[in-house]
């Protein structure tokens, strides 16, 4: 079951890489939150107590409801266009996504052979790594602040998924700390986006360059000539 959830997690992330709509991206983040919460409960189904239930339910709520709601709120307030603007095209992003997934599986495979205590299911572990990497990829390659925030969330989900496996040994202090960081990050982002919006009318971090220097036309390969 956990393996199936890992597959679904990987798919949501791939979908994120390929989707051009911010709303769909947010929905994918919601799905990831739910999946991770369920995976957490399933993984700890042997020792279900008040603590694990609390963490499970609260992570579902936080990841699956509150943060996405915040994002949607920001999206509405900033009046940004509802489309993701990538530096790297969606098809290419997907392709790179497959490569990243392959890389994480390779690492997970090697680590699971190396470690004697196989506490982490390799499928889950590889997907966790993949979430972290694809989160970073999203942050790097998307222009808008809001899509970058989504990237942060995916990255954080990856950290959470990694924490799942080693949950018995390392309680959730680490995880909650990260969570808090991210929460603050999102919160600040939200305010920032709002302010940016007020100041510049859009939330395209790519265009911060305009403050610095006149940026080159990115289509320098296209030469328009005046009709002689």
């Amino acid at each position: 079951m956990i393996d199936t959830i890992s597959v679904l997690l990987a798919l949501t992330s791939l979908f994120l890489l390929g989707s051009s709509r911010i709303r769909i991206s947010i929905r994918m983040v919601i799905a990831q939150g739910f999946l991770l919460g369920v995976a957490f409960l399933l993984h700890n189904s042997q020792h279900l107590n008040l603590g694990t239930w609390t963490i499970g339910i609260s992570s579902i709520l936080l990841k699956g409801a509150i943060l996405p709601w915040l994002l949607t709120f920001v999206l509405h307030r900033s009046k940004a266009k509802l489309e993701v603007e990538p530096f790297i095209g969606f098809g290419a992003s997907l392709f790179i996504g497959i490569l990243l997934l392959g890389f994480s599986s390779y690492i997970a495979w090697n680590l699971s052979i190396a470690s004697t205590a196989r506490s982490i299911p390799p499928a889950l572990f590889s997907v966790a790594l993949f979430l972290i990497l694809s989160g970073m990829f999203l942050i790097i390659t998307r222009k808008k602040a809001i899509t970058q925030t989504i990237g942060y969330l995916v990255l954080e989900n990856g950290v959470f998924a990694t924490g799942l496996g080693i949950g018995h040994e390392f309680p959730f202090i680490v995880e909650m700390g990260v969570m808090l960081d991210i929460f603050v990050g999102v919160f600040l982002m939200g305010i920032m986006i709002f302010r940016i919006d007020k100041a510049f009318d859009h939330t395209d971090t790519h265009l911060f360059n305009e403050l610095l220097d006149k940026i080159d036309d990115s289509h320098d390969d296209v030469v328009d000539m005046e009709n002689a």
Binding site: D3, I98, G102, W109, A123
Partner: peptide, 9 residues
Amino acid sequence: TGLLMTLAG
């Protein structure tokens, strides 16, 4: 994804 999960699982 299916291929990789088959390998990892």
